[in-house]
Design a protein around this nucleic acid. Sequence first.
DNA 1: CGACTTTGACCAGCGC
DNA 2: GCGCTGGTCAAAGTCG
Length: 266
Amino acid sequence: MGTWVATTLGFDLNLASIFFWGVCNQRAVHPTIMATAEDVSDKLKVKALEAELQRLCKENEELNRMVEVMNSNCNILQSHLKRKSTHEMGQIQTESWSGHKRQACEPLKVKASQIFVRTDGADTGLTVNDGYQWRKYGQKNTKDNPSPRAYFRCSTAPGCPVKKKVQRCIDDKSVLMATYEGEHTHEVSVTNDSLASSPQRLVMGPTPNLPCSVSVNHFQPTVTLDLTLSESHKYVASLTRDPNFTATLAAAVAQSIISPSNPTRR
DNA sequence: CGACTTTGACCAGCGC
DNA sequence: GCGCTGGTCAAAGTCG
């Protein structure tokens, strides 16, 4: 899944890079052109163009960083999907062979879902801001992961049975892996403040309250990409407003889920 | 002072 | 039965 973003966005970004690079080099090669310009308005125009150029170069850098982040997220999601798919297909086969009545094509009744949230690399906490209030009731070191696993209960409403486990991803410690169990018996308590303080998100799929999620129900997978990039809010917003971008992204994600072993992808 | 976090102890399930 | 492991409990500590 990793390179589909590059495939989707790379061409335009590369074109933009080449354009910006060419303009920058042109200015470097011919400094005297501007130095000898006598017209004041021309100088002003040049300054304005320089400023615009710098802004565009910076914007291009931000977009490239976004692509890197999205690539990283996609790689994580892809590996996770592969692991879960392999595991579940094995379970289905084992159960059908051992005489269980469930048909192989019957959708699994999965109550747990898993999300991945990219955090600041310096952040060592295990907090996932998903709009609900959680009360931590335990923490354990696990065998398969050097990072501790934290256990939370939903405290948004009394009696809510939902629990979640949060652990840093073994592959990428800047990624938090949260596993949710149960269903909330109340509405999400998302406030404008909590959303404003949470990482920027590009949400795709029917789980808008989750920052970056992969449902483990592989018969109806839900993928939400987390674009945690504190300086690039406006670019994320502009991208998410672009119907072409979201449509392409959605198609690519759907395609990658349908055929996870596509050899054209990383 | 109440709500929340930390952390060691305890319990249950599972494999050998 | 025993040990390992994941999950939960609950007392103590922390914070606003």
